[in-house]
């Protein structure tokens, strides 16, 4: 069975977004939906999508600006636009007029190549370095938690978030991301302190897991 193509859809109208999600899913695509241009840029930079389909008028950053930022950064995968008005704009691979013609969309999607992901090269030396670093960060986090140093804990979460996913700890990376946002925006109350305690436990066990293998 061939892998499903992955499409990133950006549309601020939640009804249209759900409709496009449904249409693309029915065309055997794996979808990821966002509601503005800022999220579009952030998601596209993960380089995990074969195709981007974006609305033009969106809050925070419109579809043209988002496409231009991505092209400026060297993003060379297909980007399709959807516009209510007729539009000419260099950088898009195709511009649909709204409402999107589903047959035409299906034709273009099937003609778009599936990207073959390039695996990250990780050897044992590198993996050991990661676990040593994680053990150190875990200790630092315990100290910061003990002293209730919110900013220090946030910085450690940020570091773990950035590194863990490359070494197969995607869930830990997501947890770190969630906690760093909470630490940025919320008071260090009992609930948050408990979450920090749980996070510490997870990081300690991610390290211990490695020591056993």
């Amino acid at each position: 069975m061939t892998a499903k193509k992955r499409i990133l859809i950006a549309e601020d109208d939640s009804f249209l977004l759900s409709l496009l999600d449904l249409q693309c899913s029915s065309l055997n695509m794996q979808t990821c939906c966002v509601g503005n241009g800022e999220l579009l840029v952030a998601e596209a930079l993960s380089y995990t999508f074969d195709i981007i389909l974006t609305d033009i008028q969106m809050p925070l950053c419109d579809g043209i600006e988002a496409m231009q930022i991505l092209r400026r950064l060297g993003y060379d995968r297909p980007v399709f636009a959807m516009s209510a008005d007729s539009l000419e704009c260099e950088g898009f691979d195709y511009i649909f007029e709204k409402p999107v013609n589903v047959e035409l969309l299906a034709e273009l999607l099937s003609g778009t190549p599936t990207q073959q992901p390039l695996p990250l090269q990780l050897n044992s030396q590198l993996t050991n370095l990661f676990y040593q670093n994680l053990a150190q960060l875990s200790q630092d986090f315990a100290t910061a938690l003990n002293n209730e140093e919110r900013e220090q804990m946030r910085l450690i979460c940020h570091k773990i978030k950035g590194g863990a996913a490359s070494f197969g700890h995607g869930a830990l990376s997501q947890l770190a991301d969630h906690l760093q946002q909470r630490l940025l925006l919320q008071k260090l109350d009992l609930t948050l302190l408990n979450e920090c305690q749980q996070f510490l436990l997870v990081t300690q066990q991610a390290g211990a897991d490695n020591e056993r293998t």
């Binding site: 840029v41 952030a42 380089y47 950064l73 992901p117 390039l118 940020h158 490359s166 990376s173």
Partner: peptide
Amino acid sequence: GASTLENVTNSIKMGAATFIAKPFTGDKIL
């Protein structure tokens, strides 16, 4: 680790050629 629009556009304005959002993947580096 923070691929916010602010980080990306500030980087471009200040002369960066590109922006890699952590975590690293083979495709991003390529």
